[in-house]
């Protein structure tokens, strides 16, 4: 049952994440944190951090990570299979249509129309992660709980990314090193 649920949840993630990269993030959050409660928001953010620092698509990384936490290696295989199944089916159809007609303007147009919504949903997942960083897991978005170190780190990292187009992995390692040292010094870990 657990294996079927893993497979089905990641099937939906694979089916509805369009545009690659971060597009899968809001869907993973919805399925894994909100619907099934397999991960807490902190664990989810750890997962996105790990996914960003290791090779491979975020959705495949997430399927393996969540699958192992929920059902061991078998769970990871079930989740990964669920995740790639929609791709297999849809790409087979696309490849067939492409080699037959090699004109997919309408389909591309329709799917291109989804891009603004995808950006909005990435933004929404980003706000969840930022509020976790700034206010903590409790969900108490109140100025008394605001973590000034987190806000300063965020602002510095954002500036570095915009100004010098530094690699995201370097920025994250940097914020981990600087932030980790500050949290340990101020006893906030």
């Amino acid at each position: 049952m657990k294996l079927l649920q893993l497979c089905w949840s990641f099937f939906q993630i694979g089916l509805f994440s369009i545009g690659g990269g971060y597009a899968a993030m809001p869907l993973i959050q919805e399925q894994v944190v909100e619907k099934q409660a397999w991960l807490s928001m902190t664990e989810f953010t750890d997962l996105i951090t790990i996914a960003e620092m290791t090779p491979g698509p975020i959705a495949i990384n997430a399927a393996t990570f969540v699958g192992i936490q929920v059902g061991g290696v078998v769970g990871a295989i079930a989740a990964t299979l669920g995740c790639i199944l929609p791709s297999c089916i849809i790409m087979s159809i696309m490849a067939y249509l492409y080699f037959k007609y090699s004109n997919l303007k309408l389909i591309q147009g329709i799917l291109g129309g989804l891009r603004p919504a995808v950006v909005a949903m990435i933004a929404s997942a980003g706000v969840s992660i930022a509020s976790l960083a700034f206010f903590g897991e409790k969900g108490s978005v109140h100025w008394d709980h605001l973590n000034p170190i987190a806000v300063a780190l965020f602002a510095a990292a954002f500036l570095v990314l915009r100004k010098w187009k530094t690699s995201p992995v370097l920025v994250m390692l940097g914020s981990g090193a600087v932030g980790g040292a500050l949290y340990l010094v101020f006893g906030m870990a």
């Binding site: 990269g21 971060y22 993030m25 953010t45 750890d46 996105i48 951090t49 960003e52 891009r115 950006v119 990435i122 933004a123 997942a125 980003g126 992660i129 930022a130 976790l132 960083a133 987190a150 806000v151 780190l153 965020f154 602002a155 990292a157 954002f158 990314l161 915009r162 995201p168 920025v171 994250m172 390692l173 940097g174 914020s175 981990g176 090193a177 600087v178 932030g179 980790g180 040292a181 500050l182 949290y183 340990l184 906030m188 870990a189």
Partner: peptide, 27 residues
């Protein structure tokens, strides 16, 4: 581990900034 958890907490701000950067470019 205390050190790992402090570093991961620092990285939360970093990943939030990376996502903000992606969103700003895409929008």
């Amino acid at each position: 581990n205390a050190i790992v958890s402090a570093v991961l907490k620092g990285m939360q701000s970093g990943i939030a900034a990376v996502i903000a950067d992606v969103v700003v470019s895409m929008s």
